[in-house]
Design a protein around this nucleic acid. Structure first.
Length: 495
RNA sequence: GUUCCCAUCGUCUAGUGGCCUAGGACACCACCCUUUCACGGUGGAUACUGGGGUUCAAAUCCCCAUGGGAACGCCA
C-alpha cells in the first residue's frame, strides 16, 4: 500500500500514417509524466488492424518521435526496430498467442463465449429489438443456447468461423476515477456483449489494450478523450481477469479552427508537416505541451528540464483546445532566435540547400554568424531563411517588382551612379561596416539625397528590393564584384 | 436516438467560495526605439453561454436549459 510502484506509462500508436500532433502530444505527456516520477516510458505498436497498419508507418512514427526527442526505454529499437525490454513483444501483431490464452481463460470461466452468428443474423436481431422498443439502445446479447466449448472447437476445426464475445453479466454502474475528469459513471448496459477475438482470429483493440497494459505493468494511462467510453469495456475486462487497473487520465481533444477534431483538411496536422515547414521540435513540443496543460509557475517558454520538473497531471485542462498555428509560429521564432548560431546554421542549412542556393561565402563561420545575426530577426521558421538568403546568391539576385517605385524617384539615378562609383573605387574585397558608412556618406554628398531617398535605392542595388535588413549589416556579406554587378543591374532598371 | 464528456477574451489559458471592477500569452490597435522592414519596449481594447438555486458572499458548488464534442464496430 505504501511502497509505490515504479511508474510505467506508454504511448501506443497505430501505425497508419504519420504521427499526428494529437498523438505526439499524448506521447509527450506520457513521457514527461514518466520522467517527472522517475518512471519508464514505453512505446507499443498497436497494429492489429491488418488492413491499415504498415511497417512503413511505424518507421515514420518512430522517426517523428526521435525528431521530437521523446525517447522510450522499451519497445521497438529506434534504429533496428527490434524489440527491446523485458515485456515484449511490443507489437500487438506479434502477441497473438498471449491474447488467445487470455481469451481461453475467459471462455473457461464462462466470461466469454464463442459466437457463430453471422453479421446478417446480428443485424436481424437488432432490427427486431428496435422494432419492439425504439426508445432503447440495442445491445448484443448471448443467444439463449450458447455453443459449448467442446462443440465450438469441433465446428472451428471443421472450418467454421466464430468470434469470441465477452459476456456482460450484471447490470450495474462502473465508476472510473479519471485523473483528468474526476469520477465518471458508466451504466453497464451502455455496451452489449462485445467481441474480444474476431472471427479471423485477430483480437480487437479493447481486449489487446487491457491484456498488454496489465502484462506490461502499466501504472498510468494518459490517452485521448475518444477512449473514454471504451474504458467501460476495459474495466469489465480488468475485473474478469482479476488484474489491477492502472490509473486513467483522458485528455481533451485538439481541434481545428472550426472547432472540429483536427484532421487533414485543416492543413498541417502531422509532426512531419511541421518539420518540413521549418518548425523546431523544441518549439513544437513546448507548444503542444501548453495546449491542454498549464504550468503551475505560469511559464510559457519552458526548457525540457523545467517541463519535467513541473509536469503533474492536476494541471490538465479538461476542455478541448484549438490548435493555434499563429502562436506556434511565434513560439518557434522565440526558440529559433535563442539558438546559438552554429546550431541555428546546422538547422537552416538543409533548407537553403534544398532551395538550391549557392552561397560560397557560407564556408566562413564569421560570414554565417553575421548573416544569421541580421536574418534571424525576421525568421519565425527555418524555411523563412530561404527568401532572406536568396538575394545573397549571385545567380539568384534579381531586381524585384517592389523596387519599381524606388527606381522611379528622380534622385535615384544620381544615388545609384554615385554608389556604383564608390564600390568601384573601393580597394578591398569586402566592405566593413565602417567602409559602408563612409561610402554611403560620400553618396549622400555627391547625389544630394538623404533619408529613404538615399538608402532605399542603395538597398535595391544590394538586395534587389527597397525593404529589408540594415544595409551596413548586409553589405559586408557581399563581395565587391558582386556589389558591382548588382549596382549595374539596378542602374539598368532605372526609368 | 442512447450513454458519456466539455463550456472564462478571437485563440491558448490562470482561477478550486471572499485576494476578481477576472490575471498572463498569441493575435489586434496605439506609442516608443528605428533613415526601411523586422526584433525589442510601453500602453490599450476584448471574456466568466443562459436561467434557476445554495450562501453573508459564486467564474468557482448544485439543478435545468442551450451549445459543442465523443462513443455506441468482428476500427484504433
Amino acid at each position: 500500500m505504501t511502497a509505490s510502484k515504479k511508474v510505467r506509462v506508454r504511448f501506443a500508436p497505430s501505425p497508419t500514417g504519420y504521427l499526428h500532433v494529437g498523438g505526439a502530444r499524448t506521447a509527450l505527456y506520457n513521457f514527461l509524466f514518466a520522467k517527472h516520477n522517475g518512471g519508464d516510458f514505453i512505446l507499443r505498436v498497436e497494429d492489429t488492424d491488418l488492413e491499415r497498419s504498415t511497417e512503413e508507418s511505424m518507421k515514420m512514427q518512430i522517426s517523428d518521435l526521435k525528431w521530437l526527442d521523446i525517447p522510450w526505454v522499451e519497445g521497438p529499437n529506434p534504429e533496428t526496430f527490434e524489440d527491446m525490454g523485458p515485456y515484449g513483444p511490443y507489437r500487438q501483431s506479434r502477441r497473438k498467442e498471449i491474447y488467445m490464452e487470455h481469451a481461453q481463460r475467459l471462455l473457461k470461466e464462462d466470461r466469454a463465449y464463442y459466437d457463430f452468428r453471422t453479421d446478417e443474423e446480428l443485424e436481424a436481431l437488432k432490427a427486431a429489438a428496435l422494432a419492439s422498443d425504439p426508445s432503447k439502445q440495442y445491445q448484443v446479447e448471448a443467444p439463449a443456447q450458447v455453443v459449448s466449448i467442446a462443440d465450438a472447437e469441433k465446428r472451428l476445426a471443421a472450418g467454421e468461423k466464430a468470434a469470441i464475445r465477452f459476456r456482460v453479466r450484471e447490470k450495474r454502474d462502473y465508476v472510473l476515477h479519471d485523473l483528468v475528469r474526476g469520477d465518471v459513471t458508466f451504466p453497464s448496459d451502455m455496451v452489449g456483449d462485445f467481441v474480444c477475438i474476431r472471427s479471423n482470429g485477430m483480437p480487437v483493440y479493447n481486449f489487446c489494450c487491457v491484456v498488454d497494459d496489465a502484462l506490461m505493468k502499466m501504472t498510468h494511462i494518459f490517452r485521448a478523450e475518444e477512449h473514454l467510453p471504451n474504458t467501460l469495456r476495459q474495466m469489465m475486462l480488468y475485473e474478469a481477469f482479476g488484474y489491477e487497473m492502472p490509473q486513467f487520465g483522458h485528455l481533451s481533444f485538439i481541434l481545428g479552427p472550426d472547432r472540429q477534431k483536427l484532421s487533414k483538411r485543416h492543413g498541417a496536422t502531422s509532426c512531419n508537416d511541421y518539420r518540413l515547414k521549418g518548425y523546431l521540435p523544441e518549439a513544437l513540443n513546448n507548444f503542444m505541451l501548453l495546449s491542454g496543460w498549464s504550468s503551475p509557475s505560469g511559464a510559457e517558454i519552458m526548457s525540457r528540464e523545467q517541463q519535467i520538473a513541473e509536469f503533474t497531471p492536476d494541471r490538465f485542462n479538461s476542455s478541448p483546445a484549438v490548435f493555434d498555428t499563429v502562436k506556434l509560429e511565434w513560439m518557434n521564432g522565440q526558440y529559433l532566435r535563442a539558438l546559438p548560431h552554429e546550431e541555428l546554421w546546422k538547422r537552416v542549412e538543409p533548407f537553403l540547400r534544398d532551395a538550391g542556393l549557392s552561397l560560397p561565402a557560407s564556408s566562413s563561420a564569421e560570414w554565417r554568424d553575421q548573416a544569421l545575426t541580421i536574418f534571424k530577426i525576421k525568421m519565425n521558421t527555418l524555411a523563412d531563411a530561404v527568401p532572406l538568403f536568396l538575394p545573397l546568391d549571385d545567380s539568384r539576385f534579381a531586381i524585384g517588382a517592389e523596387a519599381a517605385e524606388t527606381l522611379g524617384w528622380p534622385e535615384s539615378r544620381a544615388v545609384l551612379e554615385a554608389w556604383r562609383g564608390q564600390v568601384a573605387a573601393f580597394a578591398g574585397e569586402r566592405m566593413s561596416e565602417a567602409d559602408f558608412d563612409a561610402a554611403q556618406n560620400a553618396v549622400k554628398t555627391a547625389a544630394g539625397a538623404k533619408g529613404k531617398n538615399l538608402f532605399m535605392p542603395i538597398r535595391v542595388a544590394v538586395v534587389g528590393v527597397p525593404h529589408g535588413s540594415e544595409l551596413k549589416m548586409v553589405v559586408p556579406l557581399l563581395s565587391k564584384a558582386s556589389l558591382l554587378k548588382r549596382a549595374d543591374a539596378a542602374i539598368a532598371g532605372l526609368k
